[in-house]
Amino acid sequence: MAITIQDVEHIAKLARLRLTEEEKLRFQKELGKIIEYFDQLKKLNTDGVPPTTHVVPLENVLREDAVKPCLSVEEALANAPDRKGNYFRVPKVVEKEG
């Protein structure tokens, strides 16, 4: 399955990336190769193999509902590019997704 330039543009947009025309061509090639690899995997016989989401043989790793100390507000905001009072501050967002 080939990747089109539109696919690249769509994926870039979802990832909030701005690509140059040159980069788009490069990613078209690179993503295409990844998809090709999946095509190769598809050829394997997986009859009798249960669908696997995790490769570690673990299940039900849980913790007790216990409150632990949090970061201080100063620590929490230490890496923020911008803040106002005790809030993170960002350009105004209008649409809410999700």
């Binding site: 929490a76 590019p81 911008d82 106002k84 009072g85 005790n86 809030y87 993170f88 501050r89 960002v90 350009p91 105004k92 967002v93």
Partner: peptide, 19 residues
């Protein structure tokens, strides 16, 4: 108005976030 001097971003309105 949102202005961030380090990134030169300027726009009307700001959003404050509480995590």
């Amino acid at each position: 108005s949102y202005t961030n001097t380090s990134s030169n971003v300027k726009q009307k309105g700001e959003t404050l976030v509480d995590m």
